[in-house]
Structures are given as structure tokens and as C-alpha cells.
Nucleic acid binder design. Structure first.
Ligand code: SF4
Ligand code: SF4
Lengths: 137, 137
DNA sequence: TTTAAATGCTACACGCAAGTGGTATTTAAT
DNA sequence: ATTAAATACCACTTGCGTGTAGCATTTAAA
């Protein structure tokens, strides 16, 4: 929070894919279903493909599938791939020089929440996004 | 996290002010001390002044002071004033339609962290930024 | 009253994320 | 072979947060 729109899109797409039993997903299908802009989604998927998260199949009847098991893909992997995750590790005041040893009055409370977020993102996998409820995409 | 740079600047400035016993702060002084761009800081302070957080004194020997007691100014007030805080209340996937009642698999874990952040920001005041350690601005 | 030191205002420039357009390439069905 | 349906690529545009420039206004001191 606040993730970039690109990260949102990526997580939304992969979350949808893991919750569907379709075998291969065409860009057009994803675009219409998930309200992600046409060319933007294509570029994003090509990127995720190059990074090894999804596999793209060209030509007629082509589309995208997972390139590896979804329980080996962490949310932080995706975020890091599409926007970089380091900015979420930083200081809430934008400082880079100070440390845990010499914290300002904000640091302890803030760092705790920040660390929870990082831990959440880097321990939750795409397959954990599988829901037993009806999805509302 | 990630706050906008403008919010960072605002918090940094007010944090510096509450930790200093100077009575009035000129823009030039803040600019040099806090590494915030010249005109950008002035515009920001004028904005904070219009919103009632600081009071500006024009003319020679002018500058900025707190317009009200710093323990009545919450971090969320500042953030809301300069960039809007609603975006931090949203979904990590960018959805707006679903509720706590019908959550996706992410929601509970994520909402907990998000709520902690919101609570932290809306219960911590500027005066709590007062530090007994040497500051490193 | 002139000057200097301060804030206020407005318009413009820059950088990057987000979004668009057009064309090339791949592949299966006919 | 031709066609249709799909991805890949590249350049461009748009929107917005950030930063800059210049001038106007206010006020205290000399
Ligand atoms: S000590 Fe304060 S200023 Fe330094 S990183 Fe922590 S929150 Fe930021
Ligand atoms: S239920 Fe899931 S998609 Fe809906 S707001 Fe919560 S995290 Fe976002």
C-alpha cells in the first residue's frame, strides 16, 4: 500500500488465473474479464513471461499459463519484478541515513508495521490467493 | 508507505520544528537544513498555512510557526491535507467493489496490516515526534 | 522613504508511471 | 497457400507528482 497500478494488475491477473480452471488464458479474455487496458496488459504479460513467472504461447490458440508452480511464486516476487520492492523498505520520512539503533520517535511503531507488510508479501504465494468463495472480478 | 514526497517533506519539516526551540522558522532556514527544494517548500508551507496547521508571518523577520498545539495535529491530518489519505484505505488489488463480508483470500491478512497503519497515522500526533535524542536531519 | 528580507502567487518545465496505436510475427485451421 | 487469431515490439501520448523561474506583496530596520 499503495502498490503501483502495474503491481495491482499483475496480482489481479495471477489471482484470477489461479482461481480459474481454464488451461490457457488469452490476452483478450483477461482484458475483458479484468478491466485492464489492452496494450498495457499485453506488455505486462510479456514482461512477466520474460521474468519466468508465466509462459506465453504464440500463434492461434495461444495465450498465457503459469510457467512454474504458483506456490513457488511469492507476492513480493511479482511486485519486485514489475515495480521494485525496495521502496517499501524505506523510512516514512524519506530519510536514508538513520538506523534502527538511533531511531526517531516514529521509527519503532512504524518499522513494526512496515516489517509486517514486507513479511506478508514475501511469505504469501500466488496459490494462497485461491479462494473457495465466488470471485468478484 | 509509500507516502508521497510531499507528505514526507511535510512530516519532516513539522518534526524538525517540534524538535527545535526556535520560535519562528524562515523558509530559507528550513530549506537549507532539511534539503527540501526552495519553491516547493514555500508552496507546501503556504498550503499548510491555509489548512490551518501552521501560521505564516509575512515581511522581514517573518516565517512559520505552529498555528495550533502540535498535540492536536495527527500525522493523518497532514497526509490527508497534502496528498489525501483515502488511497491508503483501499484494496491491495485495486478493487473497490468487495467488502469485508465477502473477502478474497488476501483480505484478512492484508486488511489487518492496513488498519494498523491507518490507526498508527491517525493516533500519532506531531508532538509525539519530539525526540530526546540528537536529531539527524 | 528607501532598502532588505521575508512570504504569496502563477505559470512553466521535467520525469516517470500509465495508457494508446500501429505493425510485425507466430501458429492452427481451412 | 490463405486466413484468422493470437503474442511481440516500438514509438508515441497522457496525466500527475515534483521541481523551477520570476515577479508581486508584506513588513521591519536603517
Ligand atoms: S529513525 Fe525515523 S527518520 Fe530514521 S528511518 Fe526510522 S522513521 Fe525514518
Ligand atoms: S477482498 Fe480481496 S479484492 Fe476485495 S478489497 Fe479485500 S483484498 Fe481487495
Amino acid at each position: 500500500m499503495r502498490l503501483s497500478k502495474t503491481s495491482e494488475y499483475a496480482l489481479r491477473i495471477l489471482s484470477f488465473m489461479i482461481n480459474s480452471d481454464v488451461e490457457i488464458f488469452s490476452a483478450n479474455y483477461l482484458i475483458k474479464t479484468l478491466n485492464v487496458p489492452d496494450k498495457y496488459l499485453r506488455r505486462l504479460m510479456t514482461n512477466l513471461s520474460k521474468k519466468g513467472f508465466v509462459k506465453s504461447v504464440q500463434g492461434r490458440d495461444g495465450g498465457y499459463t503459469f510457467a512454474k508452480n504458483a506456490d513457488s511464486i511469492y507476492l513480493s516476487d511479482i511486485i519486485d519484478a514489475v515495480e521494485g520492492i525496495d521502496k517499501y523498505r524505506g523510512c516514512i520520512l524519506g530519510f536514508s541515513s538513520c538506523s534502527d539503533d538511533n531511531p526517531c520517535a516514529l521509527h519503532n511503531k512504524y518499522a513494526s508495521i512496515r516489517d509486517q507488510l514486507i513479511t506478508f508479501l514475501s511469505t504469501t504465494t500466488i496459490s494462497e490467493l485461491k479462494s473457495n468463495e465466488a470471485l468478484k472480478f
